[in-house]
């Protein structure tokens, strides 16, 4: 076992074939970008740096979190399209689909429950009274 190449040998880091390994700048860059994205999100909420409506602020915050997610995957987890990382990418993709269904499905169902409820007897009578021809 060679400590110099161990992380590459087990497929955790991209193998350096010919060109020098760029893991050191990746950590520094990932750290700086993560801090900047965190400060940006904080500034949007606490100092209201964006004079836009609440809906846009929410979209911006989700966008910033999404970018930070990608930044950390690339710079801290060293994920790439390389062969060793591909199987990890595939299972990550599948998990993101499950997580998406879980989150959007829960929110959608729980916040539209009223539309799927059977109306009460009084509501039903009122409905029939107001509908012509019933």
């Amino acid at each position: 076992m060679n400590t110099r190449t161990y992380f590459e040998d087990v497929g955790a880091w991209p193998a350096a074939e010919g060109k020098p390994h760029l893991v050191w700048p990746a950590y520094v860059l990932g750290f700086i970008l993560s801090l900047l994205l965190t400060f940006a999100a904080y500034g949007v909420v606490v100092y209201h740096v964006l004079p836009v409506s609440l809906t846009y602020v929410i979209a911006v915050l989700i966008g910033l979190a999404g970018i930070q997610f990608l930044v950390q995957l690339v710079f801290f987890f060293h994920l790439s399209a390389q062969h060793a990382a591909r199987e990890r990418l595939i299972i990550l993709g599948g998990t993101i689909i499950i997580v998406g269904i879980l989150l959007s499905g829960s929110i959608w169902i729980m916040f539209t429950l009223d539309q799927r409820m059977m109306p009460s007897a009084t509501q039903m009578t009122h409905y029939m009274d107001t509908q012509a021809g019933i």
Partner: peptide, 16 residues
């Protein structure tokens, strides 16, 4: 990574 989402979705959204 999990904390980034807690920071955004729980704390920052809660402070909006």
């Amino acid at each position: 990574i999990i904390w980034i989402f807690i920071f955004t979705l729980v704390y920052l959204f809660g402070l909006l």
